[in-house]
Simulated assay, not measured.
Amino acid sequence: MASNGKTFSTAAERWEGIGPYYAMFPTRFADAVIEEHTAAGDVVLDPFAGRGTAIFSAAASGRVGIGVEISPVGWVYASAKLSPASSEQVEQRLLEIADISDEYAEQAQSLPKFFSECFSPSVRRFLLAARVGLDWRRCTCDRTLMAILLVYLHGKEGQALSNQMRQTKAMSPDYAIKWWAENGKKPPNLDVVEFMRQRIRWRYAKGVVEADGSRVYLGNSVNLLPQLAQLVCEEEVPKAKLLLTSPPYFGVTNYHYDQWLRLWLLGFETDAYVTRGPYQGRFTHPVRYRSLLKEVFCHAAELVTDNAVVYVRTSKDPFTKEATLDAMLAAFPQKRLEERFQPFRKPTQTHLFGDKTLKAGEADLILLPS
């Protein structure tokens, strides 16, 4: 099995892909930056951790990754691959959830129409049992199973628990129902336990990555970074030699709307809303967006060494790039700027939303010691 040059012959290659998520930078990119700017044992900081690509890359290469992520979906992905439970525990938990799924038969019938068009009755019962029964915030085993469930919650026909859908982005209920009807698509009638058992065993077949000391925190960097800075002052946490991140691009990504179905499985609302989600307005309101970036980078400055490298991938959209660079320079005024430009090689998220004009790509903004 190979994809994009991967053979999936190592634990890192099998776990790094958890899970599908927009606005993530490639693992190979993170690997190269970490290799160039750090040594074994160094700390890598990512205050916009997403699914934990930079943090996991650091851990897999003998560094320590520390991250903060505001989206529960991204946090579950990142936490699970940094510290997964044993495969035996996860499979046992899978069976326990399946055993109680019949208790949710009545509730499965009362879900909105989208769910009956998206999932078969047995899958709906299982998902409801998992939604209630998995304590993903506190239990490592439950979080690991939840992460793998989230990967396969929706996707291409035959490769997911759902009717035909994109894997990275959940479509709006009304649009999905209409599209399925027009294309004659029905939810797959599958054995959830067997389907998930095969995928759990594949994930664990090459082992797991030892990520001692690496972790990602769930919450807002504006609030959590000062708490981490206090731990640095108390010498409980070492300072980072590399700040590697990619902040949300202005006006492009809506993490709640894109991930509404996975958020539902985590216990959030049943419906998709465009305007909900923590700090969503800061990604679309210019003043709030600038304020968010400046606050985060200034707090992050307290967590890195004086000779740290700050490496940020952002959009070449003029406003996003300018706001990001202004925030970086405000936090690190003594550092030397270097820019590298990265053209897009595949369709972008804006392409998915109907804007198919050519884009210049992304920009890497690098602050180096003077």
Score class of each variant (00 low, 15 high):
residue 18 I to W: 08
residue 19 G to M: 03
residue 19 G to R: 13
residue 20 P to E: 10
residue 21 Y to V: 00
residue 22 Y to Q: 06
residue 23 A to F: 14
residue 24 M to G: 10
residue 24 M to P: 01
residue 27 T to I: 03
residue 28 R to T: 14
residue 28 R to M: 08
residue 29 F to S: 01
residue 32 A to D: 15
residue 33 V to Q: 12
residue 33 V to S: 01
residue 36 E to T: 08
residue 36 E to S: 14
residue 37 H to T: 04
residue 38 T to S: 09
residue 38 T to V: 01
residue 39 A to K: 04
residue 39 A to W: 00
residue 41 G to V: 04
residue 42 D to C: 03
residue 42 D to F: 00
residue 43 V to E: 03
residue 47 P to K: 10
residue 47 P to N: 11
residue 48 F to K: 12
residue 48 F to L: 12
residue 48 F to P: 06
residue 49 A to Y: 05
residue 50 G to S: 12
residue 50 G to E: 15
residue 51 R to D: 01
residue 51 R to H: 07
residue 54 A to E: 12
residue 55 I to T: 14
residue 55 I to C: 08
residue 56 F to M: 13
residue 57 S to H: 03
residue 58 A to V: 01
residue 60 A to K: 04
residue 61 S to H: 14
residue 61 S to W: 07
residue 61 S to V: 00
residue 62 G to E: 09
residue 64 V to C: 12
residue 64 V to G: 07
residue 67 G to K: 05
residue 67 G to W: 02
residue 68 V to Q: 04
residue 68 V to Y: 09
residue 69 E to R: 15
residue 70 I to K: 08
residue 71 S to E: 13
residue 71 S to I: 03
residue 72 P to K: 14
residue 73 V to A: 09
residue 75 W to V: 00
residue 75 W to M: 01
residue 77 Y to G: 00
residue 77 Y to Q: 05
